[in-house]
């Protein structure tokens, strides 16, 4: 049996009532999803994010929203991103952005130098930043940098907060002040709904208009489960607490084993291992982690936090090195 620690999934199932809701969504599966369910979900996301319903855009996964932003805005704007970043979106930008500037984040701190980004804002631009960053887990933005970027009227800023629930840091409160700010989030991670794929955009006025034609495709089981999850979100905070505490434990344990750990703020940790073929060796023991050398730097690996017993299994194997 293989345990997955490579996709940043939540190891905990959502509450039973949520799984039951998804099953209930199957009852009329011969029918398209009804508009009232979309509105109900938007209403609940609005409450959860303190955002008016008309500034919420739903999507089957936040990556579709990010790709759409690149499609819409790269026509007349430079796209600015960091590297590494959410790899699927980064790759998409390389293929489809007309003009692209990437800022390389380097170990050990993976910090974003504010000056580097502010220097690039002398032409119309769309800045896309994942915060916390994937795969480093680093927090790249603070209020100061964010407002400095947004004060440029020619610049749009899209912050991907896929891991917001684990970091506790959000900029949603600034959307009212800055129409050129938008935030993408997902219910795949903290809400344990990866298999259903629900993403949403909290759109500043400027984004809202541009996304008005964005097609919303969510299946009935997806809508039903998401609605139930937001109506009864108690399980969420418990699971986040458990994952964050496990994250701290694994970080410490790996450090004790002489592994270089880069402290992060999401549901995964970034490590650098000196052991050749580290990922393949773990895979031989049934543990799958993300080998980042395929897309980024040699020797770097991302490990999603699993159930305590799975994390113990991982640590017991690493102890043998």
């Amino acid at each position: 049996m293989i345990t997955n620690h490579h996709m940043n999934e939540n190891p905990y199932l959502p509450a039973k009532s949520i799984r039951d809701a998804a099953v209930k969504g199957m009852e009329n599966v011969n029918r398209y999803s009804e508009i009232k369910y979309f509105n109900e979900l938007k209403h609940l996301i609005g409450n959860y994010s303190a955002m008016p319903l008309d500034q919420i855009v739903l999507s089957p996964g936040s990556d579709f929203l990010l790709r759409e932003a690149i499609n819409i805005f790269s026509k007349d704007r430079k796209i600015i991103m960091v590297n590494p970043s959410f790899f699927a979106v980064s790759e998409y930008a390389m293929k489809f952005a007309r003009k692209l500037t990437k800022i390389q984040l380097s170990p050990p701190g993976f910090k974003l130098d504010p000056e580097l980004i502010l220097n690039e804002l002398d032409e119309p631009a769309l800045v896309i930043i994942d915060n916390p960053n994937n795969p480093t887990g680093a927090i790249l933005l603070d209020n100061n940098l964010l407002e400095n970027i947004l004060q440029n009227k020619n610049v749009l800023l899209l912050v991907d907060e896929a891991y917001y629930e684990f970091s506790g840091q959000t900029f949603a409160g600034l959307i009212k002040k800055y129409p050129n700010l938008a935030i993408t989030r997902t219910m795949d991670k903290a809400f344990s709904l990866a298999g259903l794929r629900i993403g949403y955009l909290l759109a500043g006025e400027y984004f809202k208009d541009q996304f008005s034609d964005f097609p919303t495709f969510l299946s009935r089981p997806t809508l039903f489960a998401a609605i139930e999850a937001l109506k009864n979100p108690e399980y969420l905070s418990q699971n986040i607490k458990k994952i964050v505490s496990e994250r701290a434990r694994i970080e410490e344990e790996l450090k004790k084993r002489g592994i270089e750990v880069f402290p992060g703020h999401a549901n995964f940790i970034l490590i650098k291992s000196k052991v050749p073929d580290f990922a393949r060796t773990l895979m031989d023991s049934g543990i799958r982690i993300k080998d980042l050398s395929e897309v980024w730097l040699n020797g770097f690996y991302r490990i999603s936090i699993g159930l305590p017993e799975d994390n113990d299994a991982l640590l017991s194997i690493i102890k043998n090195y």
Binding site: K102, Q104, E120
Partner: peptide, 16 residues
């Protein structure tokens, strides 16, 4: 210091 590297047509990466 930081340097821009041309990576494709109108595409660049800023790297130390």
């Amino acid at each position: 210091g930081f340097k821009k590297v041309i990576t494709a047509y109108k595409k660049e990466t800023i790297i130390e």
